[in-house]
Design a protein around this nucleic acid. Structure first.
Lengths: 340, 340
DNA sequence: GCGCCACGTCCTTGATCGTTGCCATCCACC
DNA sequence: GGTGGATGGCAACGATCAAGGACGTGGCGC
């Protein structure tokens, strides 16, 4: 490992000159610059980011935390963000927090120890005083993905769930559905809450209502969706359509229907807030909202890097206040919904 | 940020004593230890890993690189490895290389600059002299995931593809299939090559053969699988069963069949080397091999940490030679295959 | 015209970031 | 006096940055 000293020796200049050349932090004569660049090439020098980070007290590292990297939504986010940030010269720290907020906070701490410049967080939203806990651990600019934490001082990118809800409800209502059930997620996760209240509102606008016995809120796992759908479909009065909020629930719903020898859309229509690669492989193919994961990730990366590059100091303009950007989903009509 | 000096001042001892207490690198009296620990708690000290890494020339960081984090296989690996390594106090650097070996090598370099202790790599296996290129960039212990690079000086965990092939072939042959087609992946990726040659061998053992016109090798994308299956199924002589090597190909195969108004297993049986969450949501549910991703990841993490902890120096035993560990898959019989 | 000072440019010396490890020192005890 | 455990001082690790030196140039006063 060649160090800056080796370069200085090879170039016959001081380490400061080498540093100034590389970082363009001070004027260097053309002659000296040429000698330095030649020496850099000759000894195969690449700056040691560890030493630089120590000296500067900051790094070009971004921490990414998601509850479960196995979910297509999180994986898509991770892929796009990593790509976008790598293009801007950032490397990525990663943690799949397994829906465990203690782990999440601990990993944020570890990342902070490594002086990450920023964080991208799909938050677990678990535990009392979650927002406050988070604030106690995050010491750098952060961007929240998918889930809003009201009042938190971070940029946030999210789906336009109210719009998505209107799209879904309009589609179902146009098909004549009135007995609509919804399986939402854990209360307190805004993406789920917004989808639920959006559906409620959209139904109200259409003169309909989401019956309490047709409303399920719980953790969004496949198993619980299986039970929820089995329960819904064994009632004397059954829904004619079921809305789910993510891909795991779609899997669960399909399994539940099959176990009861029901079929979508013959016995019940199925529609989801979340599209995924496999939607098209199901039979029926699942009508679903496609969330703009690429758009979200791009915006998140852009907002984060904007904040990281914000000039500091006396004369500098104040950074923008926390922003919330929403992206419109697209309804992909496939074959899992049919007219009543 | 409290530093070790703050602790030393608060405890009334030297920084050396604080360091010795924390690292247990030298004997410290019970009295001093108590003072140090109290001071650590009082000032809220946490060691600065950057400074430590600089000083020691190594870190507790592991780099993970996969071609595409969106694939369930890679995501499962990432999740398990991150979890296992976090438990041992390692943090994770992450890169989704987008099936681009230049990016892969560049990211390995960046990770090396950050003095990662080890690498976990699901290699792209792309480009001429791939193994040699890799060797030129990897400067720390590494473990290869899923894809073997023959002769490379790294531990490797992989599926037992020969066994998997025998299981698949036995299942199909028992159902009376003789006209079997296989869609493999890019040549040069051992997991694909082994699956193909394993199927060939297993068929040969059963007195059958894989017809050249029923053998497709290409990059393992969904789109190419669509075309391959459309092609296979538009022949005058059609296969009675199709074997695919991964989940993207299953999606493609399902789409192709639907586009031609065929149905599995009525018109053709379908079986896959790779199980995934969504296999059960498909109709038919896909009969597939479940690869032991958890086992693979656990072994990979264990082998890597074993090497990282290997004592160095004169008297120490030599580290083990590169090891290749294979994990047996399980055949999950679902409803996508039927007797001829 | 000469000498001095001021100034700008380019470069170097030396301190520093927080940590660890080598070595010297100190004290108590045999 | 030797031994050995406990502790502190100091120099690194590789980089950046503040301060100041060297040097050439130009303006100005005598």
């Amino acid at each position: 490992m060649a160090t800056i000293k080796d370069v200085a020796r090879a170039a016959g200049v001081s380490v400061t000159t080498v540093s100034a050349t590389i970082n363009m932090s001070a004027p260097v004569s053309a002659e000296a610059r040429a000698k330095v660049l030649a020496a850099v090439a000759a000894v195969g020098y690449s700056p040691n980011p560890i030493a630089r980070n120590l000296r500067l007290g900051k790094s070009r590292l971004i921490g990414l935390l998601v509850p479960d990297i196995s979910s297509p939504y999180a994986a898509g986010m991770a892929r796009s963000m990593q790509s976008a940030l790598a293009d801007k010269g950032y490397s990525m720290f990663f943690s799949s927090t397994q829906e465990d907020s203690a782990r999440e906070l601990a990993d944020i701490d570890r990342m902070s120890d490594h002086m990450v410049a920023g964080l991208a967080l799909l938050p677990t939203c678990l535990g009392a005083d979650y927002a406050q806990n988070l604030a106690g651990h995050i010491t750098c600019p952060a961007v929240l993905l998918d889930r809003v934490i009201p009042g938190a001082p971070y940029d946030c990118v999210a789906d336009d769930n109210a719009l998505g809800a209107r799209m879904i409800v309009r589609h179902l209502v146009q098909l004549g559905h009135r007995d609509i059930a919804m399986i939402a997620g854990r209360v307190g996760i805004t993406s789920s809450d917004e989808r639920l209240s959006g559906v409620r509102q959209a139904l109200a606008d259409a003169g309909l209502a989401l019956a309490p016995e047709f409303t399920v809120t719980h953790h969004q796992s496949e198993e619980l969706a299986v039970r929820a759908v089995q329960d819904l479909m064994s009632r004397s009065r059954r829904p004619s359509a079921i809305i789910t909020i993510n891909s795991a629930q779609v899997r669960g719903a399909m399994r539940a229907l099959r176990s009861m020898h029901f079929r979508a859309p013959d016995d019940v229509s199925l529609i989801a807030f979340d599209n995924f690669h496999y939607s098209a492989g199901f039979d029926p193919e699942i009508t679903s909202l496609s969330q703009d994961v690429g758009g979200l990730s791009g915006a998140a990366a852009a907002m984060l890097t904007e904040r990281l590059g914000w000039p500091k100091g006396e004369g500098a303009a104040a950074p923008p206040p926390p922003r919330l950007v929403r992206f419109a989903p697209t309804l992909i009509v496939r074959s899992s919904c049919r007219p009543v």
